[in-house]
Structure formats: structure tokens, C-alpha cells
């Protein structure tokens, strides 16, 4: 099965990797986008992802059912989100710090649980890649070029991409979306119009955390099918950065996630193809290009006006 390394093979490889690698960034990034749109900065995404990754993995490990893993990850995400919401919204804590606290807590607890409940790295059978078998001899995967790029992913990857238009719809076309934006832009005005800012913020923070949990699960039961301590390795922070990249818009987050992960795939190919670039320089490419892309002179939206500002009802 010697395969000629044609240009097409490389392009397919890069794009396919880029799409797959974007999965966790999309879940976590879209979740964080909702948080920030409502005015809450959650820097603890990485910690929530780790908790989601562990619980998702553990559920699959115990039951063998990958969907139970998703449920477990979302559930633990909700719990972590509730904690963040209580601290940051009800207790009006400084959001930059509370997020770092949540991150440390999630990092520590997920590793501890791993140590006591598993103790060693093992594999599970999580979600596998769908090939879209249409008839006996034809699957969408067989379509040249397009097939191997787009029709060879796990259901969680498709879910992540599907979430982009859904998020855009929720944010722009529903009353709830309107309330979220109002809570983040001008909570006082929203309040005077009868929007319960606190409730809206609670809901979005919990939603964002549930998605972050899912992001972790997409690593541990779909992309990698293992759990290891600190396996996100700071992905959650990148996801937060991608929200800024995407100017708080779902399609912007999508663009950021795809750019970052595709360039990452590109640099891996560059190494494999023995291009004369030191590995360290290759590794820093996605980070560098993300900054450069953002420095391009496009019109950008301003951040939600009330981001990180707590809201107290009835004052003044």
C-alpha cells in the first residue's frame, strides 16, 4: 500500500487534521463566547475541560457506552459551571482570579481522581469515525478529495461544527440570545427592560461550562480515547484567546479554531516532509500566524461593554 505523496494527499491530510483538531476548540470556544457575550470572563475553561475529559472517559471505561461518556462530561461541566457562576455572578468575584482558581481546582481534582480511580493510562473504545455508508458499495467517504476530508470524522466533530450555526441562530435570532447580548452590553438597561440579568448570566455560564466539559470529552473519548493528567495542556486558554480572535461571533470563533488547528496540521506536515525548518519554529507557527492574522486591518467588533463587570440589581 505504498502511497505516493502527491500534493492532493498532503492537502487532504492537512485539512482533515485541521477539521478534527478544531473540535475541542470549537466546543470550548463557543461556550466561552456565550459566557463573554453575557459579560462573564471564564478563564477556568481548561480546568472544566479536564474534568469533562476525565468523567467522560471514566463513564465509557465503566460502561462501554460512549454516549454515557458525553452525558457524564456535560454533567460535570454543569457542576463546574455552577461553581463558577456562584463565585463570579452571585458573589461578584474578580473574574480573572476566580477563573484561575477554577482552573487549578479542575486540574488538581481531575488528576487526583485519575490517580485514585484509574492509576494508569488505559484506552477505551469511544466514538469512531463515520464513513457515511449510503449503499453497499458507496459511502460518502469514497468521493475523491472531499470524502477523505469531510466524511471521515466522529460524531462529536460534526456536532462541534453543527454547533456554530446553532450558536449563531440562538445568539442572533432568539429572544434568549438578545437577552444574553443585553446582559453583556448594558446590564442596567437590560434590567430595566425586565431581563433578569443574573439568571441569564447563570444560564450562559453553565451552558459554556457544559460545552467545555464536552470539549474535554471530545478529547478523551473521541479524538484520543485515553485519559492522562493535564491532557488538555492549556487548550482551554487557547480557546479563550480564540473568542477574542473571533470577535465574540460564532463564525469568527469557527474561523479562529480552523486557522489555528489547520496551521498546526500544516506545521506537522512541514516536519514530516523534512522541510528545512527547525521543529521549534514549526511548532510556534500556529501561534505566530494567529497573531498576524488578527493584526490584519479588518474591521473588528468591540468587546462586550460589561465584560468582567459584575451586576448588582437596584444599586444607584
Amino acid at each position: 500500500m505504498t502511497q505516493e505523496l502527491t500534493f492532493a494527499v498532503i492537502i487532504i491530510g492537512i485539512l482533515h487534521s485541521g477539521i478534527r483538531l478544531a473540535t475541542p476548540y470549537l466546543y470550548a470556544g463557543l461556550g466561552e463566547m456565550f459566557d463573554q457575550r453575557a459579560g462573564v470572563l471564564n478563564l477556568g475553561v481548561d480546568g472544566i475541560m479536564l474534568m469533562g475529559a476525565f468523567f467522560g472517559f471514566y463513564a465509557v471505561y465503566q460502561t462501554g457506552n460512549a454516549w454515557l461518556g458525553v452525558a457524564a462530561a456535560v454533567l460535570v461541566g454543569i457542576v463546574m459551571g455552577l461553581l463558577m457562576a456562584v463565585v463570579s455572578i452571585s458573589f461578584q468575584a474578580e473574574q480573572g482570579i476566580s477563573g484561575i482558581g477554577l482552573y487549578m481546582f479542575g486540574l488538581g481534582l481531575s488528576s487526583l481522581l485519575f490517580k485514585t480511580m484509574l492509576g494508569t493510562v488505559e484506552g477505551v473504545q469511544g466514538f469512531s469515525e463515520l464513513k457515511f455508508q449510503i449503499t453497499q458499495n458507496f459511502s460518502l467517504y469514497d468521493i475523491p478529495i472531499i470524502g477523505p476530508i469531510f466524511f471521515n470524522h466522529s460524531v462529536l466533530t460534526y456536532g462541534a461544527f453543527l454547533l456554530v450555526p446553532i450558536s449563531a441562530y440562538v445568539l442572533n435570532k432568539t429572544t434568549w440570545g438578545l437577552k444574553i447580548k443585553a446582559a453583556g452590553q448594558n446590564p442596567e438597561a437590560a434590567d430595566s427592560l425586565g431581563v433578569n440579568v443574573t439568571t441569564v448570566r447563570y444560564m450562559t455560564v453553565i451552558l459554556g461550562a457544559a460545552l467545555a466539559g464536552l470539549a474535554g470529552a471530545s478529547l478523551s473519548i473521541s479524538l484520543l480515547n485515553i485519559f492522562q493528567e493535564n491532557m488538555t495542556n492549556g487548550m482551554g486558554f487557547i480557546a479563550v484567546a480564540l473568542v477574542y480572535f473571533g470577535s465574540w461571533r460564532p463564525y469568527g470563533v469557527l474561523a479562529g479554531a480552523l486557522l489555528f488547528s489547520t496551521v498546526n496540521a500544516l506545521q506537522l506536515w512541514a516536519q514530516v516532509l523534512n522541510l528545512p525548518i527547525p521543529s521549534d519554529v514549526a511548532v510556534m507557527l500556529p501561534y505566530l500566524l494567529t497573531i498576524i492574522a488578527l493584526a490584519m486591518p479588518f474591521r473588528r467588533a468591540a468587546q462586550p461593554a460589561a465584560l468582567t463587570r459584575p451586576f448588582t440589581r437596584g444599586d444607584n
Partner: peptide
């Protein structure tokens, strides 16, 4: 890692007292 978790808790609890 247990200590990391406890430190995280301390941070969370202390920032909550502002309120």
C-alpha cells in the same frame, strides 16, 4: 495534584468574600 486542587479552592473561596 491534590495540593493544586486545594490551592484552587482557596483562590475561589477568597475571591468570593468581596461580596
Amino acid at each position: 495534584v491534590l495540593i493544586t486542587a486545594i490551592l484552587g479552592l482557596i483562590v475561589l473561596f477568597v475571591v468570593s468574600t468581596d461580596f
